[in-house]
Amino acid sequence: MTDKTEQIRIVLAKLGLDGHDRGIKVVARMLRDAGMEVIYLGLRQTTDSIVAAVEQEDADVVGLSMHNAGHLTLAPAMVEALRQGDIDVPLIVGGIVPDADVEALEQAGVAAILGPGASAEEVVATVRSVVSEA
């Protein structure tokens, strides 16, 4: 009965108005095919709706996809919302994040950043390592 107990549950969402959902949908399938349970929230989420989902779904990790150059504002806001909610769950940001912004995001508390062109192996390995380190 222990074979399924380590199954990773990840919440995937688009925060704010950004409607580019090609990447997040591809990633959802990659993670499903890697055996994870993906709780897909879709477009136009708020930090509150994501926090609520993480609590109710007891997710192991949150993944945000960002394509509108809003990551320097929105990702720290998400980290802060999780902190305020007393939720100790790591945040991964994927999408269009220039190298120059990686350090700022890491300092803001983002656990990992997946830039453009990350392969399926990188995506899956990053989620696994972030969860196991949490």
Binding site: K4, Q7, A28, R29, L31, R32, D33, A34, G35, M36, E37, V38, I39, Y40, L41, G42, D48, S49, A52, A53, Q56, E57
Partner: peptide, 28 residues
């Protein structure tokens, strides 16, 4: 769940978007 990989995409929260007061739990 996917019979092949054991993974799942659970999307019911999308269809229940806007319901903020209820407790919703997705189960694979």
């Amino acid at each position: 769940s996917s019979p092949l990989t054991g993974g799942a995409i659970l999307g019911d929260r999308v269809r229940m978007a806007g319901v903020t007061e209820a407790f919703i739990r997705s189960v694979a």
